[in-house]
Design a protein around this nucleic acid. Structure first.
Length: 912
RNA sequence: GCCGGAGUGGCGGAACUGGUAGACGCGCUGGAUUCAAAAUCCAGUAAUGGCAACAUUGUGUGGGUUCGAGUCCCACCUCCGGUACCA
């Protein structure tokens, strides 16, 4: 009987499905384990072999946890709202729901073939009204709450409303608030809600009549059509994620995430401590607020710089500078973000004509305008300290502005200009002689005493834009009554998407939803919001829905949430390092404040799987001809490398007829061969249709089976490293499974499995593998776990092991990696239940005890003695141990040896 | 520039806290089996020298710590990923 993977895999996948072996039921008698994959966007292209890598890893991990007595939740779903489906709808007129449905079916079928242990009954889809009902529900809660900085958590907006009515607010009294109109009160509260409306720039393309996402804009032109794109203010929804900045930063500490990922999140939040400071203009008309992390260098400020977009630019420009400033603003406005980033070396700017007073020295400081200061960070204005900031220094040099050296670095000449810790203050009045950290403190205290500045923490993090002018997303459960937004009562959720006749943008900047007139207009002065939520809305809480996907009265039940708690292991791509993970953490913190989840942090342990790269094949065309030269001899000709479809290449040799048939232009192609064949060059690069190097998992499953695919993907290398796919290497994994098969179904009938007692060697081999595989799975080192299994199977093969006592635990040992063959083997041993729930074998330490070895000891090249020592003993320990032996000492005559050479496991050489 | 991570055979990669470098797999070489091939099995495979036992050199480069360094420290080079006029 041969290893017929196709029949085996088909058989057990059907059986698992029929038996419901992967159905998860909360079981309080067991410890829980929640293993999660980032759910995919169901694109039309289907999967390539890179996609399942992370899924295979979580599958092995979750199966292992199930074998070791955990109640495991390992769900899968689809992030089904998004742009590609909408684009496709625009082009074909098909409803995005239809194409999405079709794509999901393809994905599901591809995933099923690989034999994952997902509980498909818990599947979620973000575009399902029964799911987005609760996304809308959470949005309503965000709208209904504000962040109380005193308590550091979200509270109901009614509490703030009551507080304002009782004690007034920042710039109004209680009486004033009470007498405000409803509209005005709402305006005030809008400044606090966690989901709020504000005006912000969007990428507006007049020609297309639509708003574009950032990645649809290239160099100021629309990616499709190349029409000009301008910034335009529009009223949009935002999430006040900045309110949670401190908490999101602090709780990063407790997470078992890759250090790089945590660092990216830290940088994204970009917390910096410093001070704000007010500079009055010389005419006393205005004051300019700046933020600095170096208040200690206040005496070194010799000029001020405003961002071109700063609101005071107009007011501070004097008549005689009017022209120069207008010209500069026009120039700055014409430069895209990209231009600005690209040429950071060029110094540009213009003098406004105005001066401010230095708050401490009363000196006059000129106010300049330059685009190296960004409107979006801090206050959009800085005090320039050329002595301690490289950009300020370059600017001062270029425009010949004064420099006051305020830091004495003689103690540490190597210190950089912007070094924040090294040096002593000079030329700085009362700060003179202080070290930098001390001076920062003193300066802040002085600013606060003079009431012109205050200690301040600044963040790079911006509030998240939450509006999209698109069709295929969650509708906002919002109605405008005379322009004032109100959320729908929970009983009216879900608010489903209206049917529209066209998915094309309306041309006036509104979402296609706006064309559903009856849906939008509810009566006099009563209109629905026509924007939809962005792609990340549905993915910001989906892991919670898996816990209780059928719930019709709440997003999830408290009891189920308390059982499943945090995600124990989350695996996904690093491309979501800041977006999805930041939003999800924020929503989770918010739900925690509401008492809906038991921990603020959603994902305890996180791993980014590395990308599987493609191995492209290249052919070399001699320039100006249709002749192709083999890779080994291409240096003899001037030629260009061209990508060729890897399906036309076998073992790096080109299928010549196939190549000629591939493209019309190659029909007449001629070839210069080497050794009678055409060899292709290879290149490792991203797996992409563009390079014709995509390997489809279905093809691998057809040829080798899902178990081989799983083993090979894990064997390729560490989970988190990028690694090239090389189909030629897959034979090793396939051979491994065939060897496993032969242990259970030997060719020789006399070798049939029996109940004899295994030998010591057999036990040792098995238990060594158990110990190694268990610890490797724990640290997600699946590549070495597979190696350990290979060693084990190789040894058992050489022992011709056919003992049930070894082979039974072996089938379970292999089960997480190759579940189909394991299930077949398990049943072949007479079991009727599924191997999926079999207890994982435990390593017996008595079989792992160290072996000993009898070391021959040679003194000056002559064999003199023998000592018995553990084989695994270190070289030096052996040495010490040998020299301690009386018998050896006798041969040394008490003299210290010149040299002792231990060849571990072989001999000890002593040279006197 | 800054922040992460990594440089090990022909290739992918092992070596988990300093202790036999190159596990495991691919490829390659030789052999067995076969009419032949595929498949399978056995042996070998870092380099150099040697028939061999073995010796010497070897983990990007140069130093250092240590009885002992791929692993730790310092300096540098290269590659990958992220990020940036962030005041």
């Amino acid at each position: 009987m041969d290893y017929d993977f196709a029949a085996i895999e088909q058989k057990w996948q059907t059986w698992w499905h029929a038996e419901g072996v992967y159905r998860v039921q909360e079981d309080t008698s067991k410890p829980k384990c929640y293993v999660l994959d980032m759910f995919p966007y169901p694109s039309g292209a289907g999967l390539h072999v890179g996609h399942p890598l992370g899924y295979i890893a979580t599958d092995i991990y979750s199966r292992f946890k199930r074998h070791t007595g955990h109640c495991v939740l390992h769900p899968m779903g689809f992030d089904a709202f998004g742009l590609p489906a909408e684009q496709y709808a625009i082009e074909t007129g098909q409803h995005p729901a239809t194409t999405t449905e079709k794509n999901i079916a393809t994905f599901t079928e591809q995933l099923r073939r690989i034999g994952f242990d997902y509980d498909w009954s818990r599947q979620v889809r973000t575009s399902d009204p029964q799911y987005y009902r609760w996304t809308q529900w959470i949005f309503c809660r965000l709208f209904d709450h504000y962040f109380d900085p005193g308590e550091g958590r979200a509270k109901p907006i009614q509490a703030l409303d009551a507080k304002f009515a009782r004690q007034g607010g920042p710039d109004f009294s209680a009486d004033q608030y009470q007498t405000m109109t409803h509209e005005d009160r709402e305006k005030v509260l809008m400044g606090y809600r966690l989901a709020y409306l504000d005006y912000a720039d969007v990428n507006w393309c007049e020609a297309l009549g639509t708003v574009l996402a950032n990645d649809e804009v290239k160099d100021g032109l629309s990616e499709r059509g190349g029409h000009p794109v301008v910034r335009k203010k529009m009223r949009q929804w935002f999430l006040r994620i900045t309110a949670y900045a401190d908490r999101l930063l602090a709780s990063l500490e407790e997470l078992e995430w890759p250090p790089a990922l945590k660092e990216m999140q830290r940088n994204w939040i970009g917390r910096s401590e410093g001070a704000s400071c007010l500079f009055r203009t010389a005419d006393g008309q205005h004051s300019l607020e700046i933020f600095t992390t170096r208040p200690d260098t206040l005496f070194g400020a010799t000029f001020m710089v405003l961002a071109p977009e700063h609101p005071l630019v107009i007011a501070l420009t004097t008549a005689d500078q009017q022209q120069a400033v207008s010209a500069y603003l026009a120039y700055a406005g014409s430069r895209s973000e990209r231009d600005r980033m690209a040429e950071t070396k060029t110094v540009t700017g213009v003098f406004s004509g105005s001066y401010v007073l230095h708050p401490l020295t009363e000196n006059l400081l000129p106010v300049w305008i330059a685009d190296y200061v960004l409107a979006g960070y801090g206050t959009g204005a800085i005090m320039a300290v050329p002595s301690d900031d490289n950009r300020d220094y370059a600017f001062a040099q270029h425009f010949n502005l004064p420099v006051i050296d305020v830091i004495d670095r003689t103690e540490n000449p190597a210190a950089a200009r912007e070094d924040k810790t090294v040096g002593v203050l000079q030329n700085s009045g009362f700060l003179n002689g202080m070290r930098i950290p001390q001076a920062i403190e003193a300066a802040i205290q002085e600013l606060e005493r003079l009431n012109i500045g205050t200690r301040q923490v600044n963040y790079r993090l911006r509030d998240a834009g939450f509006s999209r002018q698109r069709y295929w997303g969650e509708p906002f459960p919002v109605v405008y009554r005379n322009g004032v937004p109100e959320i729908l009562p929970d009983s009216q959720l879900p608010l489903t998407l209206p049917e529209v006749s066209s998915y094309r943008p309306t041309g006036d900047g509104l979402s296609p939803v706006a064309s559903a007139r009856n849906w939008v207009h509810l009566g006099e002065g009563l209109e629905r919001e026509t924007d939809t939520m962005p792609g990340y809305a549905g993915s910001s809480w989906y892991w919670l829905r898996y816990m209780d996907p059928e719930n019709n009265s709440a997003p999830f039940s408290t009891a189920k949430e308390q059982y499943w708690g945090q995600v124990d292991l989350y695996v996904g791509g690093a491309e979501h390092a800041v977006g999805h993970l930041m939003y999800s953490r924020c929503w989770s913190h918010f739900l925690f404040d509401l008492g809906l989840v038991s921990q603020p942090e959603p994902f305890k342990r996180m791993v980014n799987q590395g990308m599987i790269q493609g191995r492209s094949s290249l052919v070399y065309r001699i320039e100006g001809s249709n002749t192709f030269v083999s890779a080994g001899i291409r240096d003899q000709y001037p030629c260009t490398a061209l990508h060729v479809d890897i399906s036309l290449v076998e073992d790096d040799q080109l299928n010549l007829e196939g190549f000629q048939a591939w493209r019309e232009e190659y029909r007449e192609a001629e070839f210069i061969l080497e050794d009678g064949v055409y060899r292709c060059g290879t290149e490792v690069e991203k797996m992409s249709k563009r390079w014709y190097n995509v390997v489809n998992p279905d093809d691998v499953c057809n040829r080798y089976g899902a178990d081989t695919l799983r083993i090979y993907e894990m064997f390729l290398g560490p989970l988190d490293q990028p690694k090239p796919w090389d189909t030629r290497g897959i034979d090793g994994s396939f051979r491994f499974l065939k060897k496993v098969w032969r242990l259970y179904f030997p060719r020789d009938e006399n070798q049939a499995i029996n109940d004899l007692a295994p030998t010591v060697q057999e036990w040792k081999t098995l238990h060594k593998a158990i110990a190694k595989v268990r610890s490797d799975i724990d640290r997600l080192a699946f590549n070495t776990a597979v190696s350990a299994l290979m060693v084990c199977v190789n040894e058992l093969t050489s022992f011709k092991t056919n003992k049930r006592a070894i082979l039974e635990p072996l089938s379970v040992l292999i089960a997480p990696f190759a579940p189909h063959i394991a299930e077949e083997l398990w049943h072949s041993l007479g079991h009727r239940d599924s191997v999926v729930h079999a207890p994982y074998p435990v390593a017996d330490p008595s079989w792992l005890e160290e072996e000993t070895f009898e070391y021959p000891v040679s003194v000056n090249g002559k064999l003199r003695d023998k000592v018995v020592l553990p084989l695994a003993m270190g070289k030096e320990e052996v040495e010490t141990e040998v020299l301690r032996r009386e018998a050896v000492l006798r041969w040394l005559d008490g003299k210290p040896p010149k040299r002792v050479v231990v060849v571990p496991g072989k001999i000890v050489n002593v040279v006197v």
